[in-house]
């Protein structure tokens, strides 16, 4: 895992693209981990896991050892991922029912899950399932189980919403998914680590840590120990 001692500012470039962000998350997943990738952007992390990483993908609908998306003749309606898209199985795969699949998660056996988010608080609270809008139909799926159960929860999101407001916030205003569960936040502009001591900027992309700090409403630390 990335054990940075000094915040790295990548200044001579723009923000991370979606593919670059997925590659960055993949880089930080320890070899041999059991990992659940959430629906949407987190799913693309799988495309960047290095060959021979030994990472085993869990899908909450009941499988370990999930392979890439299925195409053409490979498509089997009995073999889908959590997003209900057809996938393949890798050698060593296993199938299990839903109660076992979530016991695996809740019981702390999954090393990492990667989720999208509407907001993350400075304490690591996560809001990613419901906007709370009166006309929105609430749908939680496995998000709360993943947030609560995985040993480490990584979030992938843009740092700022379309209206320019930060998504890394002092307190989530959207309905919560889990309390103090997020340990890392990967965004287009920076990577943050969250622990009991607060939020630390580990890397920035196309901006400085000082500039970022001025745009956020929470205190963020930098790492300044020389390697």
């Amino acid at each position: 895992m990335n054990s940075a001692v000094k915040t790295v500012e990548h200044l001579g470039r723009g923000p991370l693209g979606r593919d670059e962000l997925a590659a960055l998350v993949a880089r930080d997943i320890p070899p041999g981990s059991f990992v659940n990738l959430g629906i949407g952007q987190p799913t693309t992390v799988a495309d960047h896991l290095p060959a021979g990483s030994g990472v085993v993908l869990h899908t909450e609908n009941g499988m370990l050892g999930m392979g890439p998306a299925a195409h053409g003749d490979e498509i089997d309606p009995d073999l889908t991922n959590a997003g209900k898209m057809p996938v393949t199985e890798l050698p060593g795969a296993s199938y299990f029912h839903h109660a076992d699949s979530f016991a695996m998660m809740r019981g702390g056996h999954l090393d990492v899950c990667v989720l999208g988010a509407f907001q993350v608080s400075g304490r690591g609270d996560l809001a990613n399932w419901h906007t709370g809008a009166p006309d929105a139909i609430p749908a939680v799926g496995g998000a709360m189980d993943l947030a609560t159960g995985a040993k480490q929860v990584f979030v992938m999101m843009t740092l700022f919403a379309k209206d320019g407001t930060p998504k890394l916030v002092p307190e989530c205003t959207y309905p919560l998914t889990g309390l103090a569960c997020v340990s890392r936040v990967y965004t287009d502009l920076a990577v943050f680590h969250i622990d009991r001591g607060g939020v630390t900027v580990v890397e920035t992309y196309g901006t400085s840590a000082a500039e970022l700090a001025s745009r956020l409403e929470i205190a963020v630390r930098t790492l300044d120990r020389e390697p």
Binding site: E60, H98, F102, V140, M144, D145, G178
Partner: peptide
């Protein structure tokens, strides 16, 4: 929550009266 849904049915089938679960706390 999906895992709680599965476990609540598992509990029904296993004769468990109720169970304490960390999922959803504070939500």
């Amino acid at each position: 929550p999906q895992g709680t849904l599965a476990e609540r049915m598992r509990a029904a089938g296993a004769g468990i009266g109720a169970f304490y679960c960390p999922t959803g706390v504070g939500t």
